[in-house]
Design a protein around this nucleic acid. Structure first.
Length: 153
DNA sequence: GCCAACGTTGGC
DNA sequence: GCCAACGTTGGC
């Protein structure tokens, strides 16, 4: 089983939105970066756990834990001309972008980016690297353990 | 709103 | 294949 971190703008989809969804499950769509896509497509398996990270907001940080609950499948929004995420180069035969479904495991008290930066054990964390912008990235098991111990319900 | 960092595009 | 121009991300 692998660990991940997934960023979402809470104005778009917050941890509360995932909790409020049917079966506490939403499709993770709109990833339009190849590295992030490849992590989802090649690395993620159902049962993997991910830190749910709120980005581009007043207080960025970890807001909950979700479980990957599907394999990769074509992201429908790439074919939708009305969608902000439409990709004219994607075809049904050759989709470019994929989704996975995620289920909320629990919401946590916000563990802010500011706090994360103060924790020595997380020094090498990809999220904290300078210029890191990936929206889907792996989390090392020791990083996961460190963070999980800090998360409150 | 600013801007650093990074990714993508496309001419050559 | 290079690289300039442009677009996006995301913290501040």
């Amino acid at each position: 089983m692998a660990y991940w971190l997934m960023k979402s703008e809470p104005d778009e989809v917050s941890i509360d939105d995932v909790l409020a969804a049917p079966e506490q499950t939403v499709a993770w769509f709109g990833v339009r970066n190849y590295q992030a896509r490849n992590f989802m497509r090649d690395g993620m398996r159902p049962g993997d756990l991910a830190l749910f990270y709120h980005s581009s907001c007043a207080e960025p940080g970890i807001a909950g834990i979700v479980e990957i609950c599907s394999g990769a499948y074509p992201d429908a929004s790439q074919f939708d001309p009305a969608s902000h995420y439409v990709d004219p180069k994607a075809t049904q035969e050759q989709p470019r972008w994929i989704s996975v479904d995620v289920r909320a495991v629990r919401k946590t008290a916000l563990l802010s980016l500011k706090q994360l930066r103060t924790i020595p054990a997380l020094d090498g964390m990809r999220l904290l690297a300078k210029g890191s912008r990936l929206s889907v990235m792996p989390v090392e098991p020791h990083e996961w353990r460190t963070i999980e111990a800090l998360l409150e319900q």
